[in-house]
Structures are given as C-alpha cells and as structure tokens.
Amino acid sequence: MMNPVSRISLFVLVALVPSVFVLLPTIAFVANSFFAVENGQIVPTFTLSNYAAFLQQPEYWGVFVNTLGLCLQVSIICLVFGLPVAWFIWRLPERNRYPMLFVVILPLFMSYVVKLFAFRSILGLNGFLNQLLVASHLIDKPQMAFLFSRDAIVLTQASMFFPYMVLPIFLNLERIPHSLTQASSDLGASAGMTFREVVLPLTMPGVVAGLVFVFIMSLGDYITPQMVGGMMGHTFGRVVWSQFGVTFNWPLGASFGVVLVLVCAALVGAVGMTSRQQRI
C-alpha cells in the first residue's frame, strides 16, 4: 500500500509531463492571441483586436467558412466509402479480417509528404491517371484538370484520411455481438434491413468518431491544399500558417488557432452529446 504522500508525489510526477508539454504551451498559445505586435515585436498586452480582425476581414472568415465546407465534403466522402469498406472487412472470415484491415491502414505507415507527392504524380499532366485515360482512349490528350483544383484537394485528403474513418467504424462494428445481426435475420429482416435497423444505428458512435477525426485532420491540414489545390489551395490552414511562417504575427495566428480549436471542441462536444442520447 502506498502512503498518501508518495501517492501524491507520484501523481505530480506523472502529471508533470503532460502539463509541461501540453498544458503550458496551450496556455501560452491562448495568451498570445490576446497580445499585440508592435514594430515586429510581440507586446504582451490584452487586446481583442486579433479576434476583431478575424471577424471583420472576409479574407479570413470567408476562407474559414469555405474551408469548413471543404472539410465537411472530405468527411462525407470518407464516410460514404469508409462505412461500406469497414462493413465489408467486418463481414470477412476471421482469418482474413485483420490482414485486410491492415492493408487498409497501411498507408498510415507512409510519410505524409511522400503520399502527397505520390498523389501529385498520379494526378499530374504526365501522371498515371492521364496515361491510363489516354491509353484507354477515354481522352485524346493528357488533361491538367485532375490536379490543382478543389476536387483534387477533396480527393487527396479523402484518400489520405480514409483509414481514420475506417478504423473507428470497424472497431465499433467489432463490438456488435454477432447474435444481434443473427437475431435481426431470425426475426425476418433482410441483410439490407439488418444493416439499416441494427448495424447502422449501433455503428453511429464509430461513424461520428470517424467524421470528427477526418474533419479535424482536414481542418488542420495546411500542406495538402497548397500542394494539390493550385489556385483553390487557399484554405484557413494556409492563412494561419502565413501569420506564423511569413508575417511572424503570432498573436493574430494564435487567435485564428484558438478559433480552430473552439470549432473543433464545439464539434466534439456536440457529437458527445448526441451519442450519449443514443444509449449505446
């Protein structure tokens, strides 16, 4: 048995690492968003002007709204493809299930940048997709249209974040006892009805988790839009980056970051509330 003193000191020791490396930077970050910049130097005062700038200038909040739309699109596409894939893997015989899951999440072991370059070379003018389409006589000559567009961002992000949708849904499916789908079938439901009435409702927590994962990752991704988005690649992530990496206006960038965090937190909170009402 541990005495209270050593238990408390152990707690402090364990809590120290996360507080030093997570809590403190976050606090510093939030504090920064209320600071100002004068003559290229950050002045620790208290001002709301950074947040005002965000709300007043359409090149900030307008891009933000656009970016939210983009992230939503990516999340929904991931869901539309991820749910059937997760379901398919779940239905596989046990000996094939985990190898197949591994295949789906394999890209996660690859560097993010490598994947981006791979996508660019696939979609590019001299890329695989164009060669394939030309070879199959679907188009006469290579098209530039596949790369550097909003669709290219959506496609690339959806592909890259796809495993983050499949994983939580699959893990959720794994938690559904087989007796439930058997009971549904036993009671007269077709496979489709069983999916709609039993599997889908019980998978909602996984679906929601996947949506949140993909949405947040897409929202925070400032490299993919630049790499494959071309003229459409100006997303909120880029705006934030420009404040940190170009202008060194950290307070303004921090305020944008706080806005991002708040939106993500609100999203997770809302999702948590709906899934609690689900009794699952």
């Binding site: 200038q57 090149e59 900030y60 705006v239 420009s242 170009v246 206006n249």
Partner: peptide, 9 residues
C-alpha cells in the same frame, strides 16, 4: 501578408 491572403482568397 494580408494583401497576399486577399489575393489568394
């Protein structure tokens, strides 16, 4: 930077 953001947006 602001001008650049405006141009890109």
């Amino acid at each position: 930077t602001q001008l650049w953001n405006e141009i890109k947006a």
